[in-house]
C-alpha cells in the first residue's frame, strides 16, 4: 500500500514537472555555446600569443607557460575583486569558467564573501567551498584513471 502511494506521488511529480516545463523558457543553449566558444577561444589564443612572446624574449617553454598562468589567475582575481568577473561570466559562461580563470574566481569570490566572518573561520573555512568539491572529484578521478592506465600498461595493453 505504502509502496503504491509512493509510486503515485512520483507519477504526480513527474506529470507536474512535465506540465511546468511547458511554461518554462529553455536556456539559450546554442547561443550560450557559441558565446562560450568564441570568448573562451579568444582567451586561450591570447594566452598562447602571450606565451609565445615570453618564449621569444628568451624564456624556456616551462617558465613562459607558468608566467601566463600567473597572469591569467591574477587578472581573474582582480576582475572578481572589482566585481566585473560575474558580469563577464554571465555572458561568457564556460568560456571563462573552464580555463584557470574560473578556478581563480571560485577561490576569490568566497574569500571576499566570508571576510566578514573573520580571517581564520570565515575566509579560511570557506575559501574552498566552491573549489573544494571540484578539486576532490578532479583529483579522485585522475587517480582512478591513472590506476586503470597503470593496470593496462602492466598487462601490456596500453
Amino acid at each position: 500500500m505504502d509502496k503504491k502511494k509512493q509510486i503515485e506521488k512520483k507519477d504526480i511529480s513527474k506529470a507536474y514537472s512535465k506540465y511546468a516545463d511547458r511554461f518554462t523558457p529553455k536556456p539559450k543553449y546554442f547561443k550560450n555555446i557559441i558565446k562560450a566558444f568564441v570568448i573562451g577561444g579568444a582567451l586561450c589564443a591570447a594566452a598562447m600569443w602571450l606565451e609565445n612572446k615570453f618564449i621569444a624574449s628568451g624564456n624556456s617553454q616551462e617558465d613562459a607557460s607558468a608566467y601566463v598562468v600567473i597572469i591569467l589567475i591574477m587578472a581573474a582575481q582582480l576582475l572578481t575583486g572589482l566585481g566585473v568577473f560575474d558580469t563577464i561570466a554571465k555572458h561568457a559562461g564556460a568560456g571563462v569558467i573552464v580555463p584557470i580563470t574560473g578556478f581563480a574566481n571560485s577561490m576569490v569570490a568566497p574569500a571576499l564573501e566570508y571576510k566578514k566572518e573573520g580571517v581564520v573561520l570565515g575566509v579560511g573555512g570557506k575559501l574552498f567551498s566552491l573549489a573544494g568539491p571540484v578539486l576532490v572529484c578532479g583529483i579522485t578521478s585522475s587517480i582512478l584513471v591513472g590506476l586503470i592506465y597503470l593496470m593496462l600498461d602492466k598487462l601490456g595493453i596500453g
Binding site: 569558467i97 576569490v108 569570490a109
Partner: peptide, 17 residues
C-alpha cells in the same frame, strides 16, 4: 544569495527560471 546559493562575485549563469 550567500545563504541559499553562491558567493556574490562567483561567475555563474542563472537559468531563465
Amino acid at each position: 544569495e550567500r545563504q541559499f546559493r553562491m558567493p556574490l562575485e562567483h561567475g555563474n549563469q542563472r537559468p531563465p527560471s
